[in-house]
Amino acid sequence: MTQTNNPLPPERLLQLDDVNVHFPMREGLVKAVNGVSYHINRGEVLGIVGESGSGKSVTARSIMRLQPKQALDAGGSIRFRRKSGEEVLISSEDRQSRTMRDLRGNEIGMIFQEPMTALSPVHTIGTQIMRTVMLHRNVSKADARARAIELLTKVQMPRPNDIVDRYPHHLSGGMRQRAMIALALACDPTLLIADEPTTALDVTTEAQILHLLKSLQQELGMAIVFITHNFGVVADIADRVAVMYLGRVVETGTVDEIFYEPKHPYTQALLRSIPKLGGQKARRLKTISGTVPDPFNVPPGCSFHPRCMRAVGGICNVTTPPEVRFPNGQISRCHFAEEFRSEAAE
């Protein structure tokens, strides 16, 4: 399972192997990220889906080495291929190391959930973009400003020449998120981490932003790690999907595989809980029984077993399921993953 020592395949941009991030709290140790592995290839969009508290944001932040200060790195490796082609072992880099500062904003861009508060309220949009450009590129102020306007144009900001001198509070939520994207793209990153970028937006704006991200991704050929709790959004934008539950990736596969042949009971349950247009007849949505366990007492064995309709005593509540790999590349962490193959046809 550990391929840490092998070099990354050439198409690979980022690979996480068995990453663990823990939080020591007064009430006990919280294993927010508990052995997460996923990878992303160049120019690919990976959707990461999970409930709040499933560790998707913390994982993303440990790629940036910006996890909260009290977080403990508890092993695993994160590797990233730089623009120059060389491999960096991000997981061994320090929060403030030169390499990390060089990667952030330059090769890895990040956009956040709250467009309202994620931009500095006392600096103009232009200033904020220019600072990033000037930090990573040896350009004059005038060039940086030109670049800022170019970026604002690229994210389809109306009146970029005017907006560049505006403060965030002058802009609407959707415009702020565009500005945020412009900031993240300032130095043409090869990887963009989008942490629930559309959650705080209304549905129409969400659709616009998704469309924008998709087209920018195709235009610039960058890879996107797209974090969301919304399956519908994933279907729109992602090439592949990783489903997370309680600090673990329970299933990965292409969008089609996940949606049409889910091989993990959690994924299946999630999909059943989505309302569908034009369903046969009015039916009550299936919910997942129980609640997410509190993070201090994660159930033993498969952490989903108390809520799983297929759980089998003596197996599911005892041993952690291994990764089951299917020939098509789909991976599921369920003791009974093989059995779902036949059901999927139904």
């Binding site: 009550r284 029984s289 509190d294 108390p306 809520r307």
Partner: peptide, 17 residues
């Protein structure tokens, strides 16, 4: 009515803490 329909519980559901 709905509650009765919901009655199927996961086999290993623990007691609510």
């Amino acid at each position: 009515v709905m509650a009765s329909e919901e009655r199927e519980m996961p086999p290993l559901a623990g007691e609510q803490t």
